[in-house]
């Protein structure tokens, strides 16, 4: 079986005259956690949105499970998109539904489950991401940032996706919650076996959870490799990023932890 889940070739993305990506190549393999880093405005989130089909691409191709999304019919495409789970930067929980309904919604819509069964599964998913069942009836507006991220993760996991897209999952969390989130992600990946496309700024997350790291700079992926190899790359931005004060601190913290 082919190990490649997502294969991006010569991708180009433009906003008017502003070219965001050019000749961008990247692959995501089964079971791995790929961290995507880059300076602000280098188009990390745009890349994520292109893969999941929220932004039409301008040139090149993106193959998901060996198929090009933009050539598929709507129903075929929906079948593939069902295997995606996306966690948006600010959670994007549906504000008019409580947590349990938020997670049950894709289950009710996509499967023949009854609402009761769907909500039963939803409560299990909440427990799986470490939220107490008491939270099931709460509205998203009543939650703290960390709980929103967890609930959003539970929703992304609702249909047991093969690929999980996370857009800065630990941004805005305190270090303790962020570390817990990292551990949760590792545990769930080991248990459920999905692969993760992780856009992040958080160096600690990179050191703790990522199998490979891709660096976006100058409109393309300049390097995608294990963390040690990436950190050794001869590029100014990469050097500043991994060997600046924060980079060093995260490196030492990760070393102490292992």
């Amino acid at each position: 079986m082919d190990d490649t889940v997502i294969d991006i070739e010569r991708l180009e993305n433009r906003f008017g005259a502003n070219v965001v990506h050019q000749d961008l190549n990247l692959t995501l393999k089964r079971g791995e956690i790929l961290g995507v880093v880059g300076g602000s405005g280098t188009g990390k989130s745009v890349l994520l949105r292109s893969i999941v089909g929220l932004k039409p691409i301008d040139a090149g191709e993106i193959r998901v499970f060996g198929q090009r999304l933009n050539t598929l019919s709507t129903s075929q495409r929906a079948a593939i998109e069902r295997r995606f789970g996306v966690l948006f930067q600010r959670g994007a929980l549906y504000s008019s539904l409580n947590l349990e309904e938020n997670i049950a919604l894709p289950l009710v819509e996509h499967t023949p489950l009854s609402r009761q069964d769907a909500e039963h599964i939803a409560r299990m998913k909440l427990a799986l991401v470490g939220l107490s069942p008491n939270a099931a009836k709460q509205m998203p507006a009543a939650l703290s940032g960390g709980m929103i991220k967890r609930a959003a993760l539970a929703r992304a996991l609702a249909l047991d996706p093969d690929v999980l897209f996370l857009d800065e999952p630990t941004a805005g969390l305190d270090p303790i919650s962020a570390a817990k989130f990292d551990q949760l992600l590792l545990t769930l990946r080991d248990a459920l076996g999905f692969c993760v496309f992780l856009v992040t700024h958080d160096l600690d997350t990179l050191y703790t959870v990522c199998d490979r790291v891709a660096v976006i700079s100058q409109k393309r992926v300049i390097v995608a490799d294990t963390l040690a190899n990436v950190a050794a790359t001869d590029d100014t931005w990469v050097q500043d990023y991994f060997h600046g004060p924060r980079g060093r601190a995260a490196y030492h913290a990760a070393k102490e932890a292992t």
Binding site: L128, S132, N134, A191
Partner: peptide, 23 residues
């Protein structure tokens, strides 16, 4: 390992869910 991890995680979730039934 893979089956084990999945079953243990879900079993943990089911346990907590049983301990604290939703209001």
């Amino acid at each position: 390992v893979k089956r084990k991890n999945l079953l243990i995680s879900v079993a943990g979730a089911v346990t907590t869910q049983r301990q604290e039934p939703p209001p």
